[in-house]
Deep mutational scan, measured.
Amino acid sequence: MSIQHFRVALIPFFAAFCLPVFAHPETLVKVKDAEDQLGARVGYIELDLNSGKILESFRPEERFPMMSTFKVLLCGAVLSRVDAGQEQLGRRIHYSQNDLVEYSPVTEKHLTDGMTVRELCSAAITMSDNTAANLLLTTIGGPKELTAFLHNMGDHVTRLDRWEPELNEAIPNDERDTTMPAAMATTLRKLLTGELLTLASRQQLIDWMEADKVAGPLLRSALPAGWFIADKSGAGERGSRGIIAALGPDGKPSRIVVIYTTGSQATMDERNRQIAEIGASLIKHW
């Protein structure tokens, strides 16, 4: 067993022997301040990774656009098919120029040779490549099948209805392509620590998230040296922004954090800054 596999296998073990965790309302004060600064709703939840206990939450059962955070769930569904012998990570998928959609920095470079399922998941999570996500959605049967996968996990809230990039439209009061912070946090925890996926697939999923290259201005910008984070960000229309993450000190994750916002007129930089400040408060009061 590799060191990384050992780390993920012992996530519940280490967490069980940690000192009790206590909620700190100071972080919620910052979440509410972010709402004021952005002029928009902000949803927040913080779960203990081992027990699933909610440590703090704000608007945990209000719907927010998922945006690209759905790509972690998508690759979880792909990995479940791999575990069941219905898919192979090494299978190569070929596609054409007509398949390319807006923001496809990886797939646009491989029109000639195609990409493997493993490479597509890596591109979808680490670079948020939209064509990679659409190609992977095709392998599982489309958005409705991802929703069905989530329902089978016990998540009857999260739903995907459309493809990239239309799913980022974020129309107010439109339930399409949305989740709730509580539902997303619980589902992410199941994917990373539950028995739904094999140990190898859980490790692969967290490795992809740990290698995320496009979430630097968010929670990662607030992390002290030595902290662990595996995350996936999302951005959408109407001032929408979000991030889902597993993080913790001492090089291992111990909490799940989900943050979503929508309806702001603020710039992307300002949305990023507010999420980073929430992260800084979380870490300060850990």
Rank of each mutant, 00 (worst) to 15 (best):
G248E: 02
G154A: 11
L111Y: 13
R159E: 13
F58K: 15
M268Y: 06
R255I: 09
L146Y: 08
L167M: 12
L38D: 15
L223K: 06
V29W: 07
S233K: 02
V42L: 12
T262A: 09
L100P: 03
F58L: 15
I125E: 02
R271A: 13
N98W: 08
C75N: 03
T179P: 00
L192M: 12
T187I: 11
E108Y: 15
R159Q: 14
G216Y: 06
T112C: 10
N130W: 00
K32F: 14
T107S: 07
K144I: 15
F64M: 06
F149Q: 11
A124I: 05
T261K: 04
L146T: 05
W163A: 07
D269E: 11
A40H: 04
E119A: 12
V29P: 04
P60T: 12
A40I: 05
M209D: 00
L199T: 13
L47C: 15
L28A: 13
L120V: 05
T138Q: 14
L28F: 09
D212P: 06
L191P: 00
E108D: 14
D99F: 11
T139I: 13
V42P: 01
G242P: 00
L197Q: 05
E62Q: 06
E62M: 09
G154K: 11
K284I: 15
K71G: 01
T187F: 07
R202N: 06
A235Y: 03
K232G: 01
D113K: 13
T158N: 02
V72D: 01
A133N: 00
D99I: 06
I206K: 13
L73G: 12
M184P: 00
L28P: 05
S51F: 06
G52E: 09
D48P: 00
R176T: 11
E210A: 14
L146N: 00
S57K: 11
T139L: 14
E164A: 01
I93G: 01
T267Q: 12
P172Q: 06
A215R: 05
T69R: 00
P224V: 04
A133S: 08
G248K: 01
I275T: 04
R220P: 02
I54P: 15
R238A: 11
R189P: 02
G52W: 05
V82A: 11
R41P: 13
W208I: 03
S80K: 06
D161F: 03
R220D: 02
S201K: 10
L150F: 15
M180I: 11
V106W: 15
L223I: 07
Y103A: 10
T261Y: 12
G239R: 02
L196T: 11
D161M: 06
D231K: 04
C121S: 04
G39H: 11
E237N: 11
L89T: 12
M184L: 06
A211C: 09
T112Q: 09
G251C: 10
W286E: 02
T187P: 02
K71W: 00
R202Y: 06
L197C: 04
D155E: 04
T138A: 12
D36S: 14
L137T: 10
R41T: 09
